[in-house]
Simulated assay, not measured.
Amino acid sequence: MKYRPLQPGLLVEGNSDEPYLRHLVKRHLDEVILNRSTRPVQVLGCQLSEVRTTAEPAEVLRAAAELGRDCDLLFVHGDADALDKTLKLVAALAEQRSRADRSGLPIPLVPVSMTESWMLADRTALASVLGAKTLAGYPYTKVSDVENRVRCHGSKKPVTPKQVWKTLLGDDAHDVLTDSAELLVRRTDLAVLKQLPSYRAWCDLTEDALGELGYLLHRR
């Protein structure tokens, strides 16, 4: 049976975002294609740009356009504080795509707070990867709280998800998250992530793009 390939590409804001998001993109696409594709499709691993979305706009645009030539979908990541910049880049890429022979369809990937908030959403998955003792100071009572600042044990004021990770894992937080990213994505219940408005919004944009490219018959 002949498979139609689906090649995603990804530009991220920082080094800490890449390991988790590239695996999450692949897993989400695998799930959607498995459940709703109109034909056999092989989702390929994410191609990554070495240029970060925090670089100079012209450099990011050049890098994104170059990566997009080899991709069907081009995910452009930015944290919430860079939303306007991310949307402008996506709009510029969409305009370029209208004149190109081959260019991936650009999609913004913007967590409400930061990538670390999505990583904190599924406490059960976290416990299975990092151990229950590590999560003794987990500060959230419901999934939606991960998109807000919260007080951690010992903190005088509400802190960001990135600071929550440092509280839980100490100074090794970056290395631990990098090493654990693939396993965490594999064990995360995507239904839990879909309780987050920012994740649902990204899913909707992705499924719209897949429909536009003919990978899906229709949106739910």
Score class of each variant (00 low, 15 high):
residue 78 G to Y: 01
residue 39 R to V: 07
residue 38 T to M: 12
residue 58 A to K: 14
residue 95 E to Q: 14
residue 62 R to E: 14
residue 88 K to I: 07
residue 101 D to C: 02
residue 99 R to I: 03
residue 30 D to S: 11
residue 53 T to A: 02
residue 76 V to R: 00
residue 35 N to Y: 01
residue 96 Q to K: 13
residue 76 V to E: 03
residue 88 K to A: 15
residue 64 A to S: 09
residue 30 D to T: 05
residue 50 E to K: 13
residue 100 A to N: 00
residue 48 L to M: 11
residue 25 V to M: 05
residue 39 R to C: 11
residue 64 A to Y: 07
residue 102 R to V: 08
residue 78 G to S: 11
residue 78 G to H: 05
residue 46 C to W: 03
residue 96 Q to D: 06
residue 92 A to E: 15
residue 78 G to F: 11
residue 83 L to Q: 15
residue 105 L to M: 13
residue 83 L to N: 09
residue 33 I to Q: 05
residue 88 K to C: 10
residue 25 V to W: 02
residue 72 D to C: 03
residue 26 K to T: 13
residue 100 A to Q: 14
residue 99 R to Y: 12
residue 47 Q to A: 13
residue 49 S to M: 05
residue 82 A to R: 15
residue 84 D to T: 12
residue 38 T to L: 14
residue 62 R to I: 09
residue 76 V to N: 04
residue 23 H to Y: 12
residue 26 K to V: 15
residue 75 F to W: 07
residue 103 S to P: 01
residue 25 V to A: 05
residue 67 L to Y: 05
residue 27 R to Y: 09
residue 39 R to N: 04
residue 51 V to W: 08
residue 37 S to V: 04
residue 58 A to H: 12
residue 67 L to K: 09
residue 63 A to F: 01
residue 101 D to A: 12
residue 63 A to L: 06
residue 66 E to P: 00
residue 49 S to K: 03
residue 66 E to Y: 01
residue 88 K to L: 13
residue 100 A to G: 04
residue 98 S to V: 00
residue 48 L to Y: 00
residue 96 Q to V: 02
residue 59 E to M: 08
residue 87 L to D: 09
residue 44 L to Y: 02
residue 71 C to V: 10
